[in-house]
Nucleic acid binder design. Structure first.
Lengths: 236, 236
DNA sequence: TCGAGCATAGAACAGTGTTCGTCAACGAAC
DNA sequence: GTTCGTTGACGAACACTGTTCTATGCTCGA
């Protein structure tokens, strides 16, 4: 601001940048940024408030509590999901697998969101959209209505549990090298067990520790679930 | 100690009951009792210490930290699991279902333990015993080794996620009446949605909200997983 | 008897979610 | 232009958390 030479010099005042008003979207945006940058455990009302240059109490005019903030994060993840559509009866099983891959992909772009999601009933508008897509795919597969309805509970439960597990390991800051070292230790541990106590565990130490760093385990899981649903579809 | 008649009578001292020394088992016992009585979120180092008439710092001579305490709780749950044995190739699928039911049953006797278990690699001795049993059942089913190994990751993941979800709902102190009310509200909510936005969700509102209070959803899930594994077994 | 080792436990540190009470800004009404 | 009510902002406070530091007491072996 240009100071008029005709105005008395006012007492010096620190120039405070005009502060953008708080709103729910900015709070959720900031929470998401903190979660991605520093992990789910770093997301606190104080940390979000600090990033927004305000006090923690200010947030409560826009969100009821921390749990509601969690739910808003979950809906952000759901917004990032683009499930296959329209449903195709000819390739519903492949669409189902693609849907699960897409759900995990979206959760991986917001590591830690599975911690907020697990155990919650997803009711956000975006979450309902994913539910609607899943229902379409499962209906296209010819499953009975009750099976369809319960499958849309099972599928996100599994995918969220996988994302949760991945995030716990990431939170412990396991690099691929750490994971490999952990698995080496696990192999040694298994090798040291009394052979007569855990014969199968010892015999399968290799396969038990395989595929931790890749997507093979997840692909196996989605194949099992899809095959299971397909076999139930065949019964009707 | 017998007081010598030649000693002056000492000033009166509050009689402190002899305190049982702390050990890991007592700490875990107490944590478990707090968790069952008051829920997982009530389990804190201070609360456990208070129950044991000591200070929170005392616990750290016996457990490394809260996370290790969690793992000890998980192993307690594993100790309570009695999986079907020996494996029977003639009825391996039924045994697998029984194993999953038994795992959920054991977790239900320690509500909240799924919160500690989810995301963790179970390495306790009791957990290894359940792994060994599962491996036996899956081998009896004729699955290839890699599938067997990944299935023993998938199965506890699913069961733990179910137990976690149940406990979150229980922690919110949902009585069966609350659940029914919630489902009524969900049905109304679904009914109020634009019909053209979520047609399948609306059409399936009944099945979507059915079976929440019972075991039907869980039975469906274990049927899907078992059928999926069986169909993979048939491919080999 | 003495010193080492270990467990105990209060105090302190650095944080958490949430509520209370006060203040300022703003819009409506007069 | 003034007054009043509403709303959001936000520091202070409350009640709690996990964990470490440090002093103390007990036990046991030399």
């Amino acid at each position: 601001m240009t100071q008029s030479p005709w105005q008395p010099i006012s007492p010096s005042k620190p120039v405070r940048p005009a502060k953008e008003p708080l709103n729910r979207e900015r709070i959720v945006d900031t929470a998401l940024r903190v979660m991605v940058d520093q992990g789910y455990e770093a997301v606190s009302m104080r940390k979000i408030a600090q990033e927004l240059h305000t006090g923690p109490a200010s947030l409560y005019a826009h969100v009821a509590n921390k749990k509601e903030l969690d739910q808003l994060l979950v809906d952000r993840a759901a917004q990032a999901m683009n499930l296959p559509s329209p449903p195709d009866p000819e390739r519903w099983q492949e669409q189902l697998k693609e849907a699960m891959r897409e759900m995990l992909r979206a959760m991986r772009t917001m590591p830690g969101v599975a911690r907020a999601a697990i155990g919650a009933v997803p009711l956000g508008e975006a979450a309902l959209r994913t539910t609607e897509c899943l229902l379409g795919i499962l209906k296209a597969g010819g499953l009975p209505d009750q099976a369809v309805a319960w499958a849309v509970d099972l599928i996100p439960l599994y995918v969220t549990a996988v994302a949760f597990e991945e995030n716990v390991q990431r939170a412990d800051e396991w690099s691929p090298e750490d994971i490999e070292r952990f698995l080496d230790g696990l192999r040694s541990y298994f090798a040291s067990l009394p052979a007569d106590r855990f014969p199968l565990t010892m015999a399968l130490a290799g396969p038990l520790t395989a595929g931790a760093a890749g997507d093979d385990r997840f692909e196996f899981g989605i194949a099992v679930i899809t095959a299971g649903l397909a076999s139930l579809a065949e019964l009707h």
